[in-house]
Design a protein around this nucleic acid. Structure first.
Lengths: 325, 325
DNA sequence: GCCGGATCGGACAACGTTGTCAACGTGGCG
DNA sequence: CGCCACGTTGACAACGTTGTCCGATCCGGC
């Protein structure tokens, strides 16, 4: 800026004013400064700017589990879109489900003085963020609740969705339902399982833990689990898979064996209607989840100091056929 | 830092040294400083730090078309991973294929003094980046070549892959091949089309432009295009779809009509083997594409001043059945 | 006992920008 | 005619950190 000022024959401050579109500068000087800016290829240093002015780095942080996962990619896309509307850039990092890494990344983002944080929690305890929050960095959690920290949270109605889906299975006459899940350690999975339990309970059916398979990490394991359950003396007549990777594997195996079991999956996906098996899914709007969270965050950044709120977004049952028992 | 120094009873500079793990500080003082840091919840201001020390914001920018798209999400994931290994954070932005937006976002990233840029080009001209590059911000382009700027570039062998795939169709006896593509305006699409033309040419077959459908944006349009082509008096006996969204639509329509046409798709995808239709694809390693580009970038950031290079990564033909003519 | 060198702490300036405030000129109003 | 208000401009300090340099301290050796 010093060089620009020298070339334009004005003071440093005037250059600053022109660069920031401040009022009360003679058009002629504006012209001279802009010419000098163009000639020298000057670009304002955003770091110095936000250092001096105290706040507003026009950057927010997004912490997710894994960028490449379509669910989180959708979240990132929606968050980026909202951020764009607020002239803000997005720093994205993956926690890889590691609480220590999550903590380190969040601290790093705070050190970069982001204006706010959007977090899909990996760990159980987020009290280490309290200092930052009190210092003025708003945080909004999404998809899962935070631990040990009162903050805005946007969740999906996992329990209600699972309940509604399993109710439909029950209505179709199914009583023995195989449940496949990734990891009981994840909050969303527990909620979905609880929803299934609710539905069975309200039908007066005992909840057979022998039909639940935990630790089903990928389609291949899902196929194996389905196979094992079908080989039981009294096999399930329906399956409930708690995420779409698992659904994929289950579809493959049920199709391969020519089974007529009903299949209910949590998470819709692009090709669900194309799959070679009748598949009913519990769908939700991932973009809406992220959009809501991001808008909440920007309201906080904008100065909203109201009491933290928790928003629960509905799920929708998409029926593509449920074979009766 | 002033407060920390006061509480620990040392000078500002000593705090700085401790925070930066500089040598030659008494262990006892280190202890006192760390205690004060913990007590006050001090966190170093990364902005001020990189402002003062001149370079190294430990941040790189990634510009892609659209975060939510699985292809770009995979790129982002791989880039984030490499960045993580270098203790660097990632700013991600979507150009939405708009050259003006691309330009503005890249400028914005430069204003934030990123250490380097990873760019999937949207526009045709990137000469506006020359000043930044000369000023010391390395740029690596990936997936598509840059325009008007000599820089490192990592590409896929689109033409070779398409040629190999279409050659297999030709070997299976197909001569009339319907080609479905998104937009001829995109470099990768042109390359793939050229590859198909190469293959047909080397079989001595005329290239029938009447069988090429441009502007196929989504699965529904793909289905319609397939349907129209099949209704021709002399319909194609094989289809080549130039990206996986299109492949998806084509699969659906071919399956629905019980067609026996061969289908070759560019881009592999998770469920390709599950699809209710024999589908051969030209696959490539998206992660490798991004990893290569990111590593090239960090080599530049590390001081590599060698001549810009272009890397072309191979594709692989994954055969899952090609019905003969 | 003195000196040289090794080791460590502190004062100061600087990174590039912007907020504050004062100075200047001009025109309107009492 | 004098004063004030306002539009316009510039000098200066400050944001939080780190590089530079110098002074202080301590130790061993002559």
């Amino acid at each position: 800026m010093v060089d620009v000022a020298a070339l334009a024959g004005v003071s440093l401050k005037t250059v600053s004013r022109v660069v920031n579109n401040a009022p009360h500068v003679q058009p002629e000087l504006v012209e001279r400064v802009l010419t000098a800016v163009a000639e020298l290829g000057f670009r304002r240093n955003h770091l110095a700017s936000s250092l001096r002015s105290g706040q507003a780095t026009a950057t927010i942080g997004l912490l997710i589990e894994e960028i490449a996962n379509p669910f989180y990619a959708t979240i990132a896309g929606a968050a980026a879109e909202v951020a764009g509307h607020h002239g803000t850039m997005l720093i994205i990092a993956s926690s890889e489900e590691d609480p220590a890494r999550e903590r380190q990344l969040l601290r790093d983002m705070c050190a970069r003085r982001v204006d706010g944080l959007l977090v899909v929690p990996a760990g159980e305890d987020h009290s280490f963020l309290r200092a930052e929050v009190e210092l003025g960095t708003p945080v909004v959690f999404l998809d899962r609740p935070a631990g040990g920290l009162l903050a805005d949270t946007v969740l999906l109605d996992n329990r209600g969705g699972a309940r509604a889906g399993v109710c439909r299975l029950v209505e179709a006459g199914h009583r023995r339902i195989g449940v496949l899940l990734d990891s009981i350690g994840v909050h969303t999975m527990r909620e979905r399982l609880d929803g299934a339990r609710d539905a069975l309970a309200s039908a007066g059916t005992p909840y057979d833990t022998g039909l639940v398979r935990d630790g089903v990490r990928d389609p291949a394991e899902a196929a194996r689990a389905v196979s094992e359950l079908l080989d039981l003396p009294d096999p399930p007549t329906a399956f409930f898979s708690l995420n779409n990777r698992i659904t994929l594997g289950a579809v493959g195996e049920l199709h391969r064996r020519g089974s007529d079991a009903a299949l209910l999956g949590f998470d819709d996906f692009d090709m669900a209607s194309l799959v070679p098996y009748p598949l009913t899914v519990i769908a939700y709007d991932t973009r809406e989840l992220a959009r809501t969270a991001a808008e909440l965050l920007f309201r906080r950044i904008g100065g909203d100091r109201s009491w933290p709120r928790t928003v629960v977004l509905p799920t929708e049952l998409v029926e593509r056929g449920i074979p009766p028992r």
